[in-house]
């Protein structure tokens, strides 16, 4: 299967070339599609057009404590087993020297500038606000899960309790009350920085200006223009990493799987 390996290496090369690209120029881009052709971005609605929220995650500060995972889970009442945000933890070993390193990678919805989850929604339940946040109107959502398929980051899921699509909203309800998102609030290392990227004086704008050339986004080759920027990123983790899953199944003494709520409905 040498061909498979070559094709995959080719993909990696493609992606590293685009990785340095930080699509900030697009922030000012506003979509004003009226007669929209199929699968193009519909017009944005609601939210404050003078703002564009984004997040910068300083991986050098993340210790992988999952405080964000837990606080988000409590704040947003996601069902057990589903996460609006989670910190992927990797153990990287150098096979020749035997050295180990760990990599922590907080994941959440990227509030993409070109979100593929939006145009696919058949009932306009998923939409992008003018401040860039992608939200789901779960009164309108029919639970077709098309958006779950379309998101390249597995950032969406069908919420078992509401039977509708669910995802991170940067805690839009908290932002509106002048509070920080739960994950940012609880972050022990101060690794998550959220803010308005249109305001030059915001911390995120300053940090983006300062680290411009080092920032990376996930899966840049998908053309989604993610607005969650990573500082201190390792290129091997930009796309689905070539990794072995470790603590995957939690099994009891008889080899029967335990611990996953979704198995026993």
């Amino acid at each position: 299967m040498d061909f498979a390996r070559r094709a995959i290496l080719g993909q990696i090369a493609k992606l590293t070339a685009g990785a340095a690209l930080v699509p900030l120029a697009s922030i000012t881009m506003s979509s004003s599609a009226v007669a929209s052709p199929i699968n193009s971005q519909p017009a944005r609605r609601e939210g404050d057009a003078s703002k564009r929220y984004g997040m910068l995650i300083d991986l050098r500060q993340c210790i992988g404590c999952q405080a964000c995972t837990v606080s988000c889970h409590i704040e947003n009442e996601a069902p057990l087993g589903n996460f609006r945000t989670i910190v992927s933890q990797y153990e990287v070993s150098n096979e020749s020297t035997g050295d180990f390193a760990t990599m922590m990678l907080p994941r959440l919805c990227n509030q993409c500038e070109n979100p593929p989850c939006v145009p696919v929604c058949p009932v306009q339940a998923t939409f992008q606000r003018k401040d860039g946040i992608v939200v789901v109107d779960n009164e309108a959502c029919v639970g077709c899960a098309y958006c779950v398929q379309a998101c390249p980051y597995d950032a969406r899921f069908i919420n078992k309790k509401t039977q509708t699509a669910d995802k991170c909203t940067f805690c839009a309800h908290r932002l509106e009350a002048n509070l920080l998102p739960a994950c940012v609030e609880s972050c022990v290392g101060g690794a998550r920085i959220i803010g308005d990227m249109r305001a030059p004086s915001s911390q995120i704008s300053k940090m983006i200006a300062q680290h411009r050339s080092e920032l990376m986004v996930l899966k840049p080759e998908q053309g989604t223009l993610p607005q969650v920027y990573y500082l201190g990123m390792d290129e091997r983790f930009l796309s689905r990493p070539q990794a072995e899953p470790a603590l995957w199944d939690v099994r009891d003494m008889d080899g029967k799987e335990i611990g996953y709520e979704f198995l026993d409905h």
């Binding site: 309108a140 639970g143 039977q163």
Partner: peptide, 26 residues
């Protein structure tokens, strides 16, 4: 039956969406 909210199928017709292939299908 594949919809998680099958009783809301009428949303397909009140909220028809020209950008979505699924809506066109409906």
């Amino acid at each position: 039956a594949d919809l998680h909210q099958p009783m809301r199928f009428w949303h397909f017709y009140t909220n028809a969406t020209p950008t979505s292939w699924m809506s066109i299908g409906s």
